[in-house]
Amino acid sequence: MPLMLPSSLESTRNIAGVAPQLLAALRGAGTDLAPARSVVLVVIDGLGAIPLRAHAGHARTLASAMAKKDVAGSVFPTTTAAALTSLVTGVAPGTHGMVGYRVLNPERGILVNQLTEWESAGVDPLVWQAAPTLFEQATAAGHPAFVVGFPAYAGTGFTRAILRGAEFRSAQSPADRVELAWELADAHDGAIVYCYLPEVDKAGHRHGIDSAEWVRALEDIDAALSRRIPDGVGVLVTADHGMIDVPKHRQLVLDAAGGWHDGIRHIGGEPRMLHVYTEPDADLSAILDRWRRDLEGMADVISRTEAIDAGLFGPAVTDAALSRMGDLLVAARSNHAVYDGEAEDQRGRSMVGQHGSLTPEEWRVPFIRMGAFAR
Rank of each mutant, 00 (worst) to 15 (best):
R293G: 14
D289H: 08
H275G: 04
D281L: 10
A299S: 11
F313K: 15
H275C: 00
Y277E: 00
L284R: 11
L284S: 07
M325E: 09
A320G: 13
W291T: 02
T318V: 10
A286G: 04
R292K: 09
H275N: 12
H275L: 00
E296W: 06
L288H: 15
L312V: 04
L284M: 08
S323V: 06
A316S: 14
H275T: 03
A316I: 13
S303P: 01
A282Q: 04
L329K: 08
D281I: 07
L288A: 08
T318E: 08
V330F: 00
M325C: 06
A316W: 12
W291L: 05
S323Y: 06
T278Y: 01
R290A: 01
F313E: 14
D300R: 03
I302V: 15
L295P: 02
D319I: 12
E279P: 03
D300S: 08
V301Q: 05
A299T: 11
L328Y: 00
V276I: 08
L329E: 13
L328A: 03
R333I: 02
R290L: 02
L284A: 09
V317H: 09
A282I: 00
T305S: 14
G311I: 06
F313N: 14
L312T: 05
R324K: 13
E279T: 01
V301K: 05
L322F: 13
L322H: 15
R304D: 01
D281N: 12
A307W: 07
S303L: 05
G297R: 08
P315H: 10
R324P: 05
T305D: 15
G314N: 08
V276L: 13
A332R: 04
D309S: 12
A310R: 13
G326N: 11
D300E: 10
E279W: 00
D289T: 14
R290G: 01
D327W: 00
L322N: 15
R324N: 11
G326L: 03
P315V: 07
V330Q: 05
E296M: 09
I308T: 06
T305N: 14
P280Q: 07
V276N: 10
W291V: 05
D327T: 05
L274S: 04
D300T: 02
E306Y: 12
R304C: 03
I308N: 09
L328Q: 00
Y277Q: 00
D294R: 10
L295F: 03
G297W: 12
E279L: 07
R290T: 10
G297F: 09
V317T: 15
R333L: 15
G314A: 07
E296R: 13
D283G: 02
S323N: 11
G314C: 10
A286I: 05
L322T: 11
A332F: 07
E279Q: 10
G311V: 09
A307D: 11
R324I: 00
D294Q: 12
D281K: 09
T278I: 02
L322V: 00
I287D: 05
W291M: 07
E296L: 07
